[in-house]
Design a protein around this nucleic acid. Structure first.
Length: 572
DNA sequence: GCCGTTTTCGGCCCGACTGTTTTCAGTCG
């Protein structure tokens, strides 16, 4: 079975869990967690690196021992340490650590004293009142565990960024209008534009004697208050999303915003730098002894470490700190850099609006060109176009373009890539189009090699321009199909093709790490709305967020180019 | 287990909140 980076990351993460339950040296545990993150995030194929004899200890947090374990996993498909841990501990006990309220100490007690090894056993133990009898546990802890286990067993939820935005934006607006509130901002993974968020971290600056904590607890949307102190409160909204609210002083705002924006690894790296310099960083500021030396703005915090301000989307400890130190942070792409959109549908297939309405909506969204890319005939469900209907649309777009001002429609297609890698429409009609977007809409389950070959072959078609939603994943619905993304990216470079970053909130596909690979290989990325109605151009902002997480600059993004330049690329 | 412009040994990020205690351990973010 082929080994992927994610497999190695999962092994190291499990080792970390099991070692932690065994009460191993916490720094050893951290080393495995860190290695899992580094390997999971890196945009390069570890198997290939091993094959080419590269020195894995060049990777941050990978030393001689972990490099040897990576090689062992790559070469044998096994990990001796993990196998040993599996002999010493019950097989699924690591899962218990992922239930909120349970850490290594409690898991160990539950296992030793009650022989609890799985979430199901934990649930029964809590329900039967056996947990409250354990030392250090009580009735309240037992109830908490019961509820948390119930939630865990019914799949803990993460919310799509766009869904979270529907709750976050009105809530922040409401908070800003509370008496005494000077600022309110959503921090956390939401501010970092992660594709999904587990909870909303909201930061509030408020005057002395404010009532914002009480107001928040009494808010209509709040279903349950989980915890509440003078500066920090947690609540679950009626729709199930958790909100963590923190009140900070104005002089601490920058430090707090930085602290609560994270990510975790970025914060740890910053605090290490602070320590090296004899400083201390916490949510109240940067400190030398008892003197605050920075903290009112984020800029001041980074400046205290001689770093440029780092955009939130980069804060994952994936090289941004080194880049900030060297003055080499990317000038990340912005929404206003987009001049066009290369993927949209109309009511001719499964869209809802007319050509003209889509054109006007695109212009209103600040775009200068919009490619109409209907589905092709194979996608019967969407009433995909056959050559005749497509020819009619081509003529219709030509006629319409003569009357449109400030926006140009491009003639395109989202053509199905069939199982053998051929395209669903003949070259004779594809050759009449401005832009050919290819997409996989069937046989998602093909093995990696076949799926990859299928896409490479599609790119070999001389009319192929752009690979739509390259992994096919749909959040909460469909896992990505298994492909060798690096091979696809390299083939795209060879063929002069581009990859799409589909901005639909459920897709956000390319993934951030693949964006980095595309940039490294010099393959342009097109940030497309995949609009099915005039309202969908708003989704481009989520695609921009994802692109920024992938370190893309305007020059890396195909549809930041002026129309003439884009046409040269498409015709080249 | 990693790492090094004070170091190849001895460090390794920091504070709030809760529950079960009676001064603090455990967990979380």
């Amino acid at each position: 079975m082929p080994i992927h980076n994610a497999d190695i990351a999962a092994i190291f993460a499990e080792i970390a869990d099991l070692l932690e339950i065994q009460a191993a040296n916490p720094f050893r545990v951290r080393a495995y967690r860190n290695a899992a993150r580094v390997i999971g995030d890196i945009g390069r194929d570890i198997v290939r690196m091993v094959g080419q004899g590269e020195d894995l200890t060049e990777l941050p947090g990978i030393g001689a021992d972990l490099a040897a374990k990576v090689r062992e996993i790559v070469e044998t498909g096994r990990c001796t340490l993990l196998e040993r841990l599996h002999r010493e501990l019950p097989p699924a006990i690591g899962e218990l650590l992922h239930i909120p309220g349970l850490g290594p100490k409690r898991v160990r007690t539950l296992w030793h004293d009650l022989d609890v090894q799985t979430p199901e056993q934990l649930y029964r133990a809590a329900r039967d009142g056996r947990i409250r009898t354990l030392p250090g546990f009580g009735e309240k802890t037992e109830l908490r565990i019961l509820q948390a286990t119930e939630t865990h067993l019914s799949q803990a939820r993460r919310f799509k960024l766009a869904t979270a935005a529907q709750y976050a934006e009105p809530l922040v607006t409401w908070l800003r209008a509370r008496p005494g509130v000077k600022r309110a901002e959503v921090a956390g993974s939401y501010r970092r534009m992660r594709e999904t968020v587990g909870d909303l971290d909201i930061l509030v600056v408020a005057a002395e004697g404010n009532t914002v904590m009480n107001d928040f607890a009494a808010h209509d949307e709040v279903q349950e208050v989980l915890a509440r102190g003078p500066t920090r409160a947690s609540a679950i909204l009626k729709r199930g999303i958790q909100v963590d609210l923190r009140v900070v002083g104005e002089e601490n705002y920058g430090a707090a915003l930085c602290y609560f924006t994270g990510g975790k690894a970025h914060n740890i790296a910053l605090r290490r730098i602070a320590q090296e310099r004899g400083l201390k960083l916490n949510e109240y500021g940067v400190w030398r002894g008892n003197a605050r030396v920075a903290g009112d703005t984020e800029e001041s915090v980074y400046r205290a470490f001689e770093l440029a301000w780092i955009p939130p989307e980069l804060r994952e400890d994936r090289g941004e700190i080194e880049a900030a130190r060297a003055g080499r942070l990317p000038d990340l792409v912005r929404r206003e850099d987009l001049r066009g959109d290369l993927h949209a549908h109309t009511r001719a297939t499964d869209g809802h609006d007319s050509l003209r309405d889509m054109a006007h909506a695109a212009r209103k969204a600040g775009l200068e060109y919009l490619a109409i890319t209907e589905h092709s005939r194979r996608l019967a469900m969407a009433r995909g176009l056959d050559p005749q209907r497509l020819a009619c649309q081509i003529d219709e777009i030509d006629r319409l373009n003569e009357t449109l001002e400030g926006i140009r429609l491009l003639k395109g297609i989202e053509v199905d890539i069939l199982e053998d890698g051929s395209l669903d429409l003949p070259d004779s009609i594809l050759g009449r189009l401005d832009v050919v977007v290819g997409a996989v809409h069937s046989r998602f389950e093909l093995p990696r090699a076949k799926q990859t070959e299928r896409i490479l072959r599609a790119m070999d078609n001389r009319h192929f321009h752009l690979l739509a939603h390259p992994t096919g994943r749909v959040l909460e619905t469909r896992e990505p199909y298994d492909v060798d993304m690096l091979r696809i990216i390299r083939h795209a470079r060879k063929r002069g093709c581009a990859l799409e970053l589909n901005a639909h909130p459920a897709r956000l596909d390319l993934l951030d790490t693949a964006c980095m690979s595309a940039r490294d290989e010099g393959v342009p990325v097109a940030i497309d709305s995949d609009a099915h109605s005039v309202h969908d151009f708003d989704n481009l902002r989520f695609g921009i967020g994802q692109a920024r997480r992938g370190w893309l600059e305007a020059k890396d993004v195909l549809n930041t180019r002026p129309l003439a330049e884009l046409m040269r690329f498409l015709q080249g």
